[in-house]
Amino acid sequence: MQHNRNLTTIGFDADDTLWQNEQFFRMTEKRFVGMLADHGEETDISARLLDAEKRNLAVYGFGIKGFTLSMIETAIEVTGGRVPAAVIADILAAGREMLGHPIEALPHARETVEKLAGAYHLVLITKGDLFDQERKLAQSGLGDLFDAVEIVSDKSAATYARIFSRHGDGPGKSMMVGNSLKSDVVPAIEAGGWGIHVPHELTWVLEHVEPPVGASRFRQIADLGQLPGLIESIAE
């Protein structure tokens, strides 16, 4: 692709943008609720797990380890402190399985990143467990296509301003591409960059916000295959 001076740096989210992630959380949650079926309604257990995740975000951050600890906490709560050790062992095993799950790239992820590499400065910007994100990137085979990788504890306008200044020509000449309006799109636009939303059928409830439809630098595409064309149209 032809490089242009209005846009020099492109940030990509990883989970549910380049590869599947949320579906493994949903599958594990279903399994977890099944383990506690004798102790409450499915919807109630799920709601209590979500409450635990919200409480624990500030302590454990995003990722599978925090999710596993939240499941254990919920199991203790739901059973009034009488959860059998065997159930705790099953929860830990489910968490370990998630951490070992093979990478499943999303449609057009590889071809799009390959097409943009070299013409733009590409930065992978992801939040979650350090080991897990590094493992997924290595397994994806996409690591060498990125000029930089930033694994952050959270994504805010300040995060994007810092990263795009460090790895590019500042947020004004940068773009963030991702499935989460709350984490990938809105804060990137607030920092002065472009925010490109690539919706995923599953997005964690805590990542839901309204799309910034009035923002001049907001765009939405159906899949990553549409990204190169969009970049050409806005980069003139």
Rank of each mutant, 00 (worst) to 15 (best):
N56V: 01
A105V: 09
V87C: 06
V33C: 07
Y120A: 02
G63M: 06
V123L: 09
T43H: 12
A47K: 09
R48D: 04
L36R: 03
A94C: 03
L106E: 04
V123D: 02
L69S: 10
I72E: 12
M98L: 11
F131T: 09
R26C: 11
D129P: 04
L106A: 03
Q20P: 02
R110Y: 11
T79A: 09
G95W: 08
A86D: 14
K30M: 06
E42K: 13
V123T: 10
R31D: 14
P102G: 08
K127M: 11
D129T: 09
Q23R: 15
V83Y: 00
P84L: 06
K127T: 10
A109T: 12
I103T: 15
A75K: 02
R48E: 04
T74K: 01
E111N: 03
S70I: 07
G34V: 07
L69C: 05
F131S: 11
F131N: 10
P102T: 01
L49R: 02
E53I: 13
A117H: 15
E77L: 00
A89N: 14
T43D: 15
A47Q: 11
T79V: 09
A85T: 14
D38P: 07
I88H: 04
E29P: 00
A89P: 00
E73M: 01
P107R: 00
N56L: 14
P102D: 02
G80H: 05
E41R: 11
A105Q: 13
I45D: 00
R48K: 13
D129S: 12
R55C: 10
T74P: 02
A47G: 10
L50R: 13
P84C: 01
E77W: 08
K54W: 07
R110H: 12
A58Y: 10
E97L: 12
H39C: 05
M71Y: 03
L50M: 15
K127N: 14
I91D: 00
Y60T: 13
F25M: 07
D90R: 15
M27W: 06
A93E: 15
F131Y: 10
V113I: 15
V78C: 08
G34Y: 11
L116Y: 11
T112V: 09
M27R: 14
F67G: 05
L57R: 14
F25K: 09
R82I: 00
V78E: 01
E77N: 04
L36K: 03
A119F: 00
L106C: 05
E114Y: 00
T74F: 08
R82M: 07
Y120P: 03
L99F: 07
I45M: 10
F24I: 12
E104Y: 03
I72R: 12
L50F: 15
D90N: 12
K115W: 02
A85I: 13
F25D: 04
T28E: 03
R26G: 05
A93P: 05
A52D: 08
T79Y: 08
A109S: 14
F32E: 04
F131K: 11
N21T: 00
E73S: 08
I45S: 04
D90L: 12
L50Y: 14
S70L: 03
D38M: 05
